[in-house]
Design a protein around this nucleic acid. Structure first.
Lengths: 367, 367
DNA sequence: CTGAAAGCGCTTACAG
DNA sequence: CTGAAAGCGCTTACAG
């Protein structure tokens, strides 16, 4: 006998009593059930409805979902150690997209905030249990995902959608990704069309990370297509996100006229370098960013001409990706259990901003 | 017989089978039950725990809460029509506070995104059900709350905490509020100490809204304390948030030297008026804002001296309020069912910014 | 057209 | 120390 706090609430059996029908009939009326050879006389209907109104009846959602099997709850899980509820966070727009589409589809959202591990990283599996199962299905995101956890999750039959391309060995998983390869190719092609021939790729050099692989592939595609300099020294791996000024000077001295930056930290490092050395894109070199600059103020450049600094490069459709993830998850939940995994790839906008321009006049001879 | 995809999910009876015990024992072990004359042998405990881990067991939250147990799920509900996941939203910092404290306390969060009504307003009661009951308890927020719904919720015995002071007739509810009265008094007293005697209160004029009542009470306290002009025309009610320039001109002509603005729209309207008429706080009049200006750029004033424009006035401790709400809710959930409602009031910081200064020299005689 | 019954997955007295 | 049983409030075949 539970000690619950519920005694004040009425249940279907109370209505049934008041209306002089069975509890099952109350359920049917309240849910507007019709087909299945079940019809309710108008009279009964009215009595039930009136009794329900009189008693201020409210269905117990827990009981409802227990009986019906579904929660109407979509999970949101991120591997990032800080839940991206901060504004100006890179992940925030994904969440906004998820939330809007969840609203449109009539789902509530569970934010798995409880699962921070001792190291500050979030974990799916805690005490050897998968808390995501609290929800009907889950949207996952985060750059630094834990592959072991992801592999284990993929091995279960729990429905989930990753935001971002991720490959799990031996499994097909459902994801919604940005077309980093295509957009990078487009952005770098833009540089080539401006005349740039020695373009440096400044990246983290994570060879196992799909988003990096995609950008590098797009870069290579543009390089081949436009006959850009294949010099391997132009592929700069900077795992910490920092590159010494000396190395940048060396690249410039070697004839590099444009940079593609893989992430925000690298972009900012490059702009800081420009400020520190009195340089100015696009006069001294061009820059394309391979991901949106975050809204934090950018380093102020020497003189920004008439208008604002607008970084050239990709714009990841984060809102749309979040919304698409929810739609995919919804399809997963509605479809048959054995439906195949699906992959959706959304195009990025490529912006011609104020950080790209023609090849600067070489100070030293360079054809 | 439900058609769901649930059969893959393990339940306590599966563990019981695997561990060779009864389902009830599994429940006890999993819930760490001890007292009540119920003890479990270490051996049984281990077997159950191991089986649960092997099967990746996770409790069904609906079943748990139906049976009177707990979910570890805290709800977040806002009456605002757009869920405040947008950055730069007034409500966003509340949510960040809620989320951080939820993480600290080990709760997951349910965002009730599904409950948008046809009019775009969110509703607690939909399809005759209180969906909040999906969670163990709920944090509510939103300026334009629906009193009928709030009253109905208060009449139930569902645990919730409102962020903001709200009074429900005949009920004590638990809330965490900002001390608008005290902070408004402090801010207006600051004006008085600068010599202002005719201070206008620009508000929405919602006499039933507690935050408005509190600010007006604080204003009145300061007025009496400092012998400010009691002229009732200085209490300006502008329900739409807009006041015609002519009315502002009239106030200034009548000798008003300072304004207290109740919300962000009114503040911006006043600053726009200043820009449009070539005026400049604090040279031509002083302004204190009775709520934080949102991060959107403010109207650019004629000349902002050496530094930035910083609006004088209150700073609502929104993060702290969100966190406090979760702590209150946690106490409600841990405490006895009949524990009394609690009210927590947090102080606001009062900032002396760049929009307040000494009384301008009167253009027309005015003592 | 409506009722009796089973069952969703749990928690909690209550017997052993 | 552990099991059998009741019950939380619903939905849904299945009989009438």
């Amino acid at each position: 006998v539970p000690t619950g706090r519920a005694p004040t609430r009425h249940r279907q059996s109370d209505i049934a009593l008041a209306a002089g029908v069975s509890q099952a009939t109350v359920s049917m009326v309240l849910n507007g059930r019709t087909g299945k050879g079940a019809t309710i006389s108008a009279d009964t209907r009215d009595r039930v409805l009136r009794a329900a109104a009189d008693l201020g009846y409210v269905a117990n959602p827990a009981a409802r979902s227990l009986a019906g099997g579904r929660n109407n709850l979509l999970g949101v899980f991120t591997f990032e150690s800080v839940f991206p509820a901060e504004s100006a966070d890179f992940y925030h727009p994904f969440l906004v997209g998820v939330e809007r589409e969840a609203e449109a589809q009539g789902y509530d959202l569970v934010l798995f905030t409880s699962s921070a591990g001792t190291d500050g990283r979030r974990r799916i599996y805690r005490d050897n249990a998968n808390r995501l199962r609290m929800s009907d299905g889950c949207v996952l995101l985060g750059y630094e995902e834990d592959r072991a956890e992801l592999d284990r999750l993929a091995a279960e039959d729990f429905p989930f959608v990753f935001i971002g391309r991720r490959e799990v060995p031996g499994q097909e998983i459902t994801y919604v990704a940005a077309d980093y390869a295509g957009a990078t190719c487009e952005a770098v092609s833009g540089l080539a069309e401006l005349g740039h021939r020695r373009v440096a790729y400044l990246g983290r050099g994570h060879p196992d990370h799909e988003p990096t692989v995609d950008r590098e592939a797009g870069f290579e595609r543009a390089r081949v297509r436009h006959g850009l300099d294949p010099d391997p020294r132009l592929r700069v791996a900077m795992p910490s996100g920092e590159l010494p000024a000396a190395a940048l000077e060396e690249l410039l001295a070697s004839g590099v006229t444009a940079f593609a930056t893989e992430d925000d930290a690298i972009l900012r490092g490059l702009l800081d370098f420009a400020v520190a050395t009195g340089r100015q894109p696009p006069d001294d070199f061009s820059v394309v960013a391979l991901v949106d600059p975050t809204p934090q103020p950018l380093p102020v450049l020497r003189q920004q001409g008439s208008g604002q600094l607008e970084v050239s490069g990709l714009r990841v459709p984060r809102l749309e990706m979040g919304a698409a993830a929810v739609r995919l998850l919804d399809e997963l939940l509605r479809g048959p259990v054995d439906a195949p995994a699906r992959q959706v790839v959304l195009s990025c906008r490529v912006v011609a901003g104020t950080t790209t321009g023609p090849v600067p006049q070489p100070s030293k001879g360079h054809s």
